[in-house]
Design a protein around this nucleic acid. Sequence first.
DNA 1: ATTGATGCAAATAATTTGCACCTTT
DNA 2: AAAGGTGCAAATTATTTGCATCAAT
Lengths: 137, 137
Amino acid sequence: MEVPGLERRFRERGLRRTPQRVAVWSDFADHPGSTIREAAARLQRAGIGQATVYRAVRALEEAGLIVRFAAPHEEVRFAAVLDHAHLLVCERCGHVEPLQECGLRAYEAELARRSRFRVRGHTLIVYGLCPECQESP
Amino acid sequence: MEVPGLERRFRERGLRRTPQRVAVWSDFADHPGSTIREAAARLQRAGIGQATVYRAVRALEEAGLIVRFAAPHEEVRFAAVLDHAHLLVCERCGHVEPLQECGLRAYEAELARRSRFRVRGHTLIVYGLCPECQESP
DNA sequence: ATTGATGCAAATAATTTGCACCTTT
DNA sequence: AAAGGTGCAAATTATTTGCATCAAT
């Protein structure tokens, strides 16, 4: 997968752009909301060892290239991000949709003022039932 | 710990109010942002087996009495909730502060309309550095 | 060339389960 | 009394690590 900006982001962070890391990132981009285990299973078929997947996830997360999130009573899941991290997750089928704006910028600023935290970012997970899962019983 | 409303919530959900479950809930209330492991270690001293802690966490989470969240490159953490789940997390020391209003109600409604999801709720984790951790190097 | 990344297999840690016994409703 | 919860220990599953080799800068 050709990802505009990815290369640059790797370089900026001093991460080596190995085929494995790109593959891990791409896998989460193609399958947002996967668990590490699911991703590792797919990537193993491409000859990528599971230790590498775990190591790549750590590196990518530290670089802010993927985010982790936990839907209620679910294993930790990941999704690729190039920008902000906002996800809409179906509780039933696990389908994940990335969201655009969340209108939290002002809230964040006010929060920083009131709490005296230095706010670095946020993760918002909205969960519910996707249209398909609303149908089936 | 005496928790107004907890009893009722247990009953509403058909959960048995065992001393162990109350203890697990209280532990997360007293130590918001703990991992299961941390909670289990503390509770073990009270004679609660770790399998019980895992089972209680699952039950409580299903009942909406605790929430799980994952700060960036962190193990999954939990916090007790009686209402909505909004947390301010320090990335350095893990200190967690519950937040009140988030101003997302309107956003949620609009999102439901646009995405056709049936929105059930959301988890918002704002992360950054708490005042203390901004000082120390 | 140098430094860091990979794959494998082994080690460690986290989570779940079976079962006999006890508690809540 | 019935249904469900608990503790322990064993089983299973997830994650990390050591090390020799390989690849990216």
